[in-house]
Design a protein around this nucleic acid. Structure first.
Length: 913
RNA sequence: GCGGACGUGGCGGAAUGGCAGACGCACCAGACUUAGAAUCUGGCGGGAGACCGUGGGGGUUCAAGUCCCCCCGUCCGCACCA
């Protein structure tokens, strides 16, 4: 089969017919919606990565399935690590509000209690029709599945510097390229809702977002030591610094004092933490990702207390800097000053073990406290520290360093005088930037005390309940959002000599990126653009300067999921009513690398907008799934330098999009990934060709319309047992696949399909053509989400042949017979109606009646060793099962020796002797 | 160092505490074929066998790949957060 050819054909028809147009406006659609979202791509010049294909193709299959499958009270099993213990407790109560009631259960009991078991296909069919029509299951939801591009960012600008091409040019070119590749995948995307973050009609609203945050005191400007990446020539947020190095270019990051814009994410620290486990949201996220966010937020509860600074007369013997044990003990409070140093500790109970106060070198009081004698040494240390890269400073293996500053403080509990040091292992940004050193209890303080030969006072058990004030500290810092680069969203702020910092008003947006700029390494083009920089103050109309920094691209992606439904709206960032109905996102799929960046920012922005009254929900992503990583054929991470890099589109070109997608589904656990193996692709080609042969076989029957049998042995008498078994397998597979796909368990879904193929081949000569055709038809419809083009082609083949031969077969209750008008359209095929698409069909519904077996096979064990098998009626009582099991082992086992018999219906019998 | 996940045939991978290895790949044998390819059928953890087998050692249970404890290994995240 020429997969590439049929893919082209169907992609063309889909585009012409507008089959993927999303319905998100009708009342009905909004009442039963399902928002499926994949993290959008950065359009780099290179082709898309394996991760994109893996994510987009499989998420698309999920979305397609959701749009086809009725009766979706089949909810995904939760992915949390502690799931197993939870499941038993919660599943019964966890029926989603919009899910249909447990009709099926009632139906099943109804049919099983009725004594007459169906014997022929016709009976089976009529019964299944009754079942499915008597109570109509809920309709499949209206699926919203948009796509866009995260198109601001450094690579385009760096390329501009090197090759003198404007970032807009390369970006647009790259978007075209990426879109072409996405279209080749055959995704069910409605491009009407496309978002491109570097377009003014999008970044205008990113600027709006900035102004909202500014208005609500969540955006502010301050001077602070910030992370500076020399090679990217810009500052970075804490989240973008990975072990002291730049997340993007991996070069060392240093600290620089700069005035920068921050978003006050710390205001939401507590809610960002509690929201992860809040029953109200019931987030279905990987436990690992939740944990990473928890750790990143880093809540710790303790006490903040003040140490009075103790002035020292010059010539005081304590000014030696050693602050040895005997000395400190001897000196009690005599001459305390008004100054105090605040300290945060989680171990206030160790207050009696304090031997020193240690401040961060950057602590603001250092300059004021340092004694004349120590000044030179302190200055030298400060210089040394400033020179260290973050990577060196954070190296825990290096020896502790520090210096005595020539001042003392008084322990507020017992007034014992302790020396004050500065040391680079104390972080300026955490707590108060000062700690009480307790060497007996703290490893780091112990190392410090050892290095400087300080005393190690004993920690005594004392009442510390009245000391200091209770305080909660978070590791999370405010989000540094300004970047000294061109290719980003301009910050809508003007600096006026008279009015100060002036935000633009909404009507003046967007602040457009100027085109008359020069791209040079190490400089911000906006800084050198006079037309951009020089403006007038919105308040006083006098000349003023624009902010030349742009926003971190993570700001663009922190709200894009809100924009999709309103992508074309030029009056507001998003339509409040629509967004409140369509969101939160039901399933969000993307890489785990965003666990503490994008995913945290998006949650923060959602909460902030909610508090401003723009949204009525507090968490943007209900369910989160991370796709695994596709590795090189050697099992290592793919990289061009390692020579194990296989570009995905080479294999896609060779095998076609459907086979390619199928291989991604079958060869890996979606959340794990694994090594690329081409053998898997040819296996998938064979799989589809097998199905094609089955389709041709049953399509022929309808065409000739002569016999009710298929195959060479057409004369064989229909075998009722075989029919029953095939029908059982058919519905067992439907049932399993319907449960597996919502869990992204595509590998086992395909395994079930292999099984039904095997069963069909085993029984094809013994069963009626009608059942055979229905089974193959179900298989084709089940395949529609997984191989959209191939299923379409097979579906057409089935329909066309059916039309030629006349519509003889009534469908197994899941598909509608077509009018003769529609059939003639099929045959003409010039105008293809999207209603005739396999994707417009309902996913087969498992007929529970067909899943009832008369007999089951049980294993019989004696002391856990398998001794044999028995076949018992499904209606047999435990006692009857026990008796037949004992009968089986009677030759070996004496009745008197039997201590216990455990009967597990449908599984096994264990006889304990 | 701290935290988390994982460890099952030659390979990818299946198994609500209940017959380990579903399904596929590779391999072997047979059918068809002059032959090959394709296709179809059968076999395929180890062992001649009793039996032994889910990284190793203990435990709970009638029953453990699955639950608990210790150890080893791999991967990931955080890393002086007081």
């Amino acid at each position: 089969m020429n997969f590439k050819q049929i893919e082209k054909k169907w992609q063309g028809r889909w585009a012409e017919s507008g089959i993927y147009k999303a319905d998100i406006k009708s009342k009905k659609a909004l009442e039963n919606k399902h928002y499926v979202l994949e993290m959008f791509a950065y359009p780099s010049g290179a082709t898309l990565h394996w991760g994109h294909y893996f994510n987009y193709m499989l998420s698309d299959s999920y979305a397609r399935f959701r749009g086809m499958a009725k009766n979706q009270n089949i909810e995904p099993s939760k992915q949390t690590a502690d799931l197993k213990s939870q499941t038993n407790k919660t599943t019964t109560s966890k029926t989603p509000a919009d899910a249909p009631t447990a009709d099926l259960k009632n139906q099943t009991t109804k049919t099983t209690t009725s004594k007459t078991q169906p014997n022929t296909t016709a009976e089976l069919k009529s019964q299944s029709n009754k079942l499915t029509t008597s109570k109509t299951p809920a309709d499949a939801p209206s699926v919203f599945h948009p796509m866009g591009f995260d198109s601001f960012g450094l690579p385009a600008e760096n390329y501009a510097i090197k090759n003198n091409v404007h970032p807009r040019v390369t970006t647009n070119r790259n978007i075209e390229l990426a879109k072409k590749q996405i279209d080749e995948m055959g995704l069910s995307i409605d491009w009407e809702y496309e978002i491109i973050t570097s377009e003014p009609d999008y970044y205008k609203w990113t600027q709006w977002l900035f102004l909202q945050l500014y208005k609500h005191n969540l955006a502010y400007r301050k001077e602070a030591p910030v992370n500076w990446c020399e090679s990217c020539a810009t500052v970075l947020a804490n989240e973008q610094v990975v072990s002291g190095a730049c997340e993007r270019c991996e070069s060392d990051v240093s600290k620089k004092n700069l005035t920068q814009w921050f978003f006050k994410i710390t205001d939401y620290a507590e809610e960002l933490l509690t929201g992860l486990d809040d029953k109200k949201y019931n987030l279905d996220w990987p436990e690992k990702t939740k944990l990473m966010q928890r750790n990143w937020i880093g809540k710790s509860e303790g006490v903040e207390l003040e140490f009075k600074v103790c002035l020292v007369d010059s010539g005081d013997s304590g000014d030696s800097g050693t602050g040895s044990a005997k000395e400190t003990k001897a000196v009690r409070a005599t001459n305390s000053s008004a100054q105090t140093i605040k300290v945060f500790t989680t171990r206030i109970d160790t207050i009696t073990g304090v031997n020193a106060l240690i401040l961060a070198p950057e602590h603001e009081m250092v300059a004021g406290l340092v004694s004349e004698k120590q000044k030179a040494e302190v200055v030298k240390y400060l210089e040394q520290t400033a020179k260290l890269s973050e990577i060196d400073r954070q190296d825990t293996s290096k020896e502790k360093t520090g210096v005595f500053i020539g001042a003392y403080a008084l322990n507020p509990y017992n007034n014992i005088r302790v020396p004050i040091y500065i040391a680079d292992y104390i972080l300026a940004g955490y707590g108060t930037g000062a700690v009480m050193s307790v060497p007996e209890q703290d490893e780091r303080d112990k190392a410090f005390a050892k290095k400087f030969n300080l005393s190690v006072p004993k920690v005594e058990s004392v009442d510390t309940s009245k000391l200091g004030v209770k305080k909660i500290n978070y590791r999370l810092r405010d989000w540094l959002v300004s970047r000294q680069r061109y290719w980003g969203t301009p910050i809508p702020i003007v600096y006026c000599d008279l009015c100060g910092i002036v935000p633009l008003s909404e009507k003046d947006l967007p602040v457009l990126l100027p085109d008359d700029v020069e791209f040079k390494a190490g400089t911000n083009p906006l800084e050198n653009s006079d037309t951009f920089k020089n403006t007038t103050c919105p308040k006083c109309k006098k000349s003023a300067k624009r902010e030349t920094d742009t926003l971190d691209t993570f700001v663009c992606s922190s709200w894009y999921f809100l924009r999709y439904p309103s992508a074309k709206n030029n009056k507001a960032p998003f339509c409040k009513t629509l967004t409140n109905k369509l969101l939160p996102v039901d399933v969000y799929v993307g890489g785990a690398e965003h666990a503490v960046m994008h995913l945290l920012y998006a949650r923060f922005i959602t909460k902030a907008l909610r508090d401003m009254g723009h949204l009525n929900f507090g968490e943007p992503f209900k369910r989160l799934i991370h796709q695994g990583i596709i590795l090189g054929s050697d099992g290592n991470k793919m990289s061009k330098s390692k020579n194990n890099f296989i570009p995905p589109q080479i294999l896609l070109d060779k095998y076609g999009a459907d086979v390619f997608r199928l291989n991604l589904m079958f060869a890996y656990d979606f959340t794990v990934g694994g090594a690329v193996a081409e053998s898997g692709l040819s296996a998938m080609s064979k799989f589809l060709e097998k199905i094609e042969r089955l389709v041709n076989m049953v399509a022929d029957v309808a065409e000739t319309n002569t016999a009710d049998k298929v195959g060479a042995k057409a004369s064989t008498v229909t075998d009722k047992a075989a029919e029953k078994e095939l029908n059982f397998e058919r519905h067992r597979v439907i049932d399993a696949v319907t449960k597996d796909i919502p869990n992204f368990a595509f590998n086992t879904s395909i395994a079930r399909m292999f099984e039904i193929i095997n069963t069909i081949n085993k029984h094809k000569d013994k069963v009626s053509a009608g059942l055979l055709k229905d089974t193959v038809t179900d298989l084709v419809v089940m395949l529609a989400p997984l191989t959209p083009h191939f299923a379409e082609e097979m579906w057409e083949r089935l329909q066309v042949n059916q039309a030629k031969g006349g519509a003889r077969q009534t469908k197994g209750g899941t598909k509608q017979a077509k009018s003769s008008k529609q059939q003639s359209k099929d045959l003409g095929s010039e105008i293809w109606d999207k209603k005739n698409s396999v994707h417009a069909q309902t996913f087969p519904l498992a007929d529970k009646a067909a899943l009832v077996k008369d007999e089951t096979e049980l294993a019989v064990q004696v002391n856990n060793k398998i001794k044999g098998k028995i076949i018992v009626s499904t209606s047999a009582t435990k006692e009857e099962i026990k008796q037949s099991a004992l009968a089986l082992v009677a030759p070996e086992i004496k009745e008197a020796d039997v201590k216990n018999v455990i009967v597990i219906p449908n599984r096994l019998v264990n006889i304990v002797v």
